[in-house]
Design a protein around this nucleic acid. Sequence first.
DNA 1: TCTGGGGTCCTAGGACCC
DNA 2: TCTGGGGTCCTAGGACCC
Length: 426
Amino acid sequence: MASLKQVFALVDCNNFFVSCERVFRPDLWNKPVAVLSNNDGCIVARSNEVKALGVPMGVPYFKVKEVLAKGGATLFSGNFPLYGDFSQRVVQLLQEACPEVEVYSVDESFLEISTLPITDYEAWGRELRQKIMRATGIPVSVGIAPSKTLAKAAADFVKKTDPERGAFSVAGSDEARIELLTWLPVRDVWGVGWATAPKLKGRGVATGYDLSRVSDAWALANMTIRGLKTVRELRGESCFAFEHGGEPQKSIMRTRSFGHTVRNYYEIEGAVATFAAQAAAKLRQQGELAGGVLTYVRTSKHAAVQGGASQVTKLHPASSDTGAIISAALKSLEAVHDPEFGYKKAGVVLLDLHSADARQLSFSDDPTRIDRAAQLMQSVDSLNKKFNTRLVRHASEHIENEKWRSKRELRSPAYTTKWNELREVS
DNA sequence: TCTGGGGTCCTAGGACCC
DNA sequence: TCTGGGGTCCTAGGACCC
C-alpha cells in the first residue's frame, strides 16, 4: 500500500471559555473578559483584552484582582458543563468536514486531511473557520502542517499575528515553515516547558528554528526521547501519531484543594473516601475496572515546610466496587499520612484500567459474591442518577464533616442553559 | 485571608534475581 | 572482609499538556 504523506490540521478554539460566555453576552465582544477556575482560584481563560492587561494564564485571581477591576473586566466562574456542550458541537462540525478527527482537548482537535480533495489548504481552513463561527459563535484558528507540532505552531502564529486571517498552512512550503519557526519562541514550542526552555536558551537555542537545527544526538542528550521527536517534528517529520480515537484512558483521578489547611485525620479520611467514591462512579460509567488505587496528600505549595507523598494499593481482583476502592484508598492514605504536616490537597487516582467485559477472575474469587456487589453498585448508580446527585454515599465519606471543601464566594450567576436549547447564532 | 483539575509519558533508582 | 556485572520489574516523582 502506498503511504501518502500525512497532513495535519489543528483547529484551536480562541480563548475558548471566554468565547462560550460571549455567545450569551454579545455585548462583551471586544471587552475584557476572564474565566475563573473551580474555586475561583485561578484565571483559566482570558480574552485578548485581558491578555493585553498583562494578566498571565493560570495566575491566582487575588494577584490580579486589582488590575482586572481597573481594566473593567467581566469575570465568570467556570461553567464547565456548558463548555463541554460547546466543545461537542464544534467536534460534530469537524467530523462533518473530515472523517479523521482526533479530539485532543476540550478546545483543540487534530484533523488528518491528506485524503481530502483540497487544492488550497489555507482557503479550506478559512472556510472551516467560518462554518464553525456561523454554527456556534466560537472563533477558531486553523494551523496546517506535515506534523502535529508544526500544526500547533501554525495555529498559534495565525492567532497571534493575524487572527482574522483564520488559517495558516506550512504544508508543502519550506519557506513558510522557516518563517513560522523563526517567529516561534522556543518556550512556545509544543513540548518545551518551563524547565527545558531556560536550559535551551542558555545554550543559544532561542527560537523554534534554532531548535529544528540541533543534532539528533544533542537533542537526545539534552532533552528526552520525546524532545528528539519534537525536534524532528519541527523539521516536518511526523513523529507523534494521529490517534484515531477509541484508545482507552489509562487513569481516572479526583482531586481537590481544601478550603483550609487540614490537620485532622478524620477530615482527610472523609475527603479521600469522597474522591475514591466519585472516581469509582466514573469508572463504572465507563464500564471499566481498576487494578490499583493511588492516594496522595500534599501541603500547600507555598507552605514554609513542604511535604507530600503518594502510594499505590493494588486491587485483587480488579474492581469497580466503591467499597473496595475506598478501602484501598484509605489503606494508602494511612501509609502516606504524616501527622507532622497540615495538608492543603489530596487526590485519588485509579490505575491499570481495563474493560469490565474482559474481567479476569482468579480461582479464589467467588463470582456470585462479585456479581452481587456489582448489582448493589448498579442500584446506587441508578438512584444517584435519578436524583441527579450523589444521594447514596459510603459511611467513610464522613458527610457530616466536610469542612475540607473550599468555598466559592465569588461564584457569578452561572448560566444553566444547555447548548441545544439555544437559538442558532446568525 | 486568597494559588485549579485532569491527564500522559519518561526516567532514576531500589529491590530482586542469577 | 572485600568484591561484580547484567538483567528485569516496579514505583515515585518530574515534566509537560490543556
